[in-house]
Design a binder for these strands. Sequence first.
RNA 1: GCCCCGAUAGCUCAGCUGGAUAGAGCAAUUGACUUCUAAUCAAUAGGUCGCAGGUUCGAAUCCUGCUCGGGGUGCCA
Length: 651
Amino acid sequence: MNALSEIKSRFSSVLSEFVDDPTELLNMIRPAGDPKFGDYQANCAMPMGKRLGKSPREIAAELVNRVSLDDFCETVEIAGPGFINLTLKDDWIKQILTAALLDDRLAIAKVANPKTFVVDYSSPNVAKPMHVGHIRSTVIGDAISNVLRFVGHDAISDNHLGDWGTQFGMIIYGYKHFLDREAYRTAPVTELGRLYKHVRKLIDYHAAVAQLPEAEAKLAELKTTLAELVSREPSGDKKEDKQHNKQIKLLSDKIAEHAERIESLMDKVNEVKNTPDLKSQSERHSGINQAVLLETAALHEGDETNKKLWEEFLPYCRQDIQKMYERLGIKFDYELGESFYHEELANVVSDLEAKGFTKESDGAICVFLDHHDAPMIIQKRDGAYLYATTDLATIKYRIDHFNADACLYVVDHRQSEHFEKLFDVAKLWGYGDAELTHVAFGTVMGPDGKPYKTRSGDTVGLAGLLDEAESRALEITRNQNPDLPDQRHKEIATVIGIGGLKYADLSHNRGSDYEFNYDKMLALRGNTATYLQYSYARVQGILRKTEADVEAIRANPSAFEFELDIERQLAVKLIRFGEALDEVLVEYKPNFLCNYLFELSQLFAQFFDQCSVKDAGSESLKTSRLQLCVLTARTIKTGLGLLGIGVLDQM
RNA sequence: GCCCCGAUAGCUCAGCUGGAUAGAGCAAUUGACUUCUAAUCAAUAGGUCGCAGGUUCGAAUCCUGCUCGGGGUGCCA
């Protein structure tokens, strides 16, 4: 039962008498912006007034007269220019609360028309260590899938692994030339990881050596240009001088950027040069960059040795990734990686060709699109396919095989142009009926406001990130509650460490970049997982101290009483859980659920402060408050659960 | 050059399908622990919502221009 949708449905028929499609007007019914205006407000009378040539207040009065709300709205008031303010009847609120107590789903109705969603998220490159960039996709995608399922949709999570790329060429090359057999036998995952990093290092070295002269020449050229610009006399024309200064600034920035790049290249060169082993290897493997590409190409063309090695490596690589998902508590329904679509790529191209959508350009097979200057290239000049091709094959498979009504891609916002083109081509191709959505998210920034990197400029590894979050959480819980046994501290640290990390991500609007900060994500106060988890633990404390029998309470609810206003406020918040879930799904934004849970927890903290359960004035009031406690705990637990975050009975 | 995104309190960020005095947390100041966990609560202070126009009964939200920042931009993913 959802108060907002109930109100909307009551208004719907009446509004239909005034307009053809009341959808827009119904969207103007919303939770009240201020408690003094009641619980909900309908703002539709103002725009109607204009359209119907009557005063908005007149319209409002007419609406109020005609809409039947008596059974669950206490007062219906017209205020200001024509706002209709609605206050729910306490009895109705209590009825919903009772239903929620009795129901395992907290009386959240399932959607009338369930759809099939395929949610594509996480999608790391197998054989490369997972890094900070993967958490957002993983955590947001998981939360969205969970919410979709909870409200009754069929959500299929699919981890589109990068398991067919150049990184395998690197490992294969490494295996053939640098393998430590003993290490491979005892710890294959570690050894494969070492091989990847080793080959990567040599490749980066050669690439850097090749790029340095050009980069330095470019830097010198930029510096000369800058010197010329600086030496030029001001013209006296204001606009021109401003333009001139702007160019100087732009150029200076560019020079700084270039210098930084050269420094990073130098680091890579020096590391190899200063390590005798690496130096001699780099000399012996001078053609490694090309050789790795050839190994990859051989794999793709079905070379037996390489195919066999790939089959041997893949389970080890997956095992490594799996460890990370276990720590994060994430599971996928499918993990159909790029390799799964390999056989289909030629068909994708030939089908699009047959349908006349392609055009050859500079030897590549392209699909040209309106609104985009550059075409989508689906086959390279050398005959190889691209990720665009794989993505098209994937859409076809998801729609044909899973009967997907919607495909969601939880991927970095930098790929938005790629997805625009991809979806355009998919529509041309005949897959336009399904909803195709790029659920984009921003970059994780470091304290300097730049993308989060280690001091040496590498991306931050995910494993280390989780370790750090947990160890900081451990320190916090030890300080906070020294009496608990250490084993308990470790359990708590895992739940609040991982929870804090996930929540920090989910509570921000996914579209924005956000600053990664351990202290903030693990802070004990404020909008953090810890605060919500603490609210839950406090409820459990009450239940323990009052020796409440939760099962009995749930099976046989008593009457609710609102003695203080905060009890009613908490109650109203509790019955709005479903609205929060609906909000999440409008634009696939989990931060709406975070907001809701935070506000719920804040209200509970006030309730906790003002309303003693143990020493309530009467037995009936005590039971009523216990019931509010039980519902609060269940809502927080369920809500955090949908976000992939755990709770603790004691912390 | 072209395309996309952003600019809200000292800091980190919500709010953006137009709604009533613009919110939260942190930091600052002040009060509340013999009490169901103070990992808490209450209170004070803090704003030209980048700038300038426009649409509207009403604009942080929509439109146009500008400034500043970030990202992307045919054979990587």
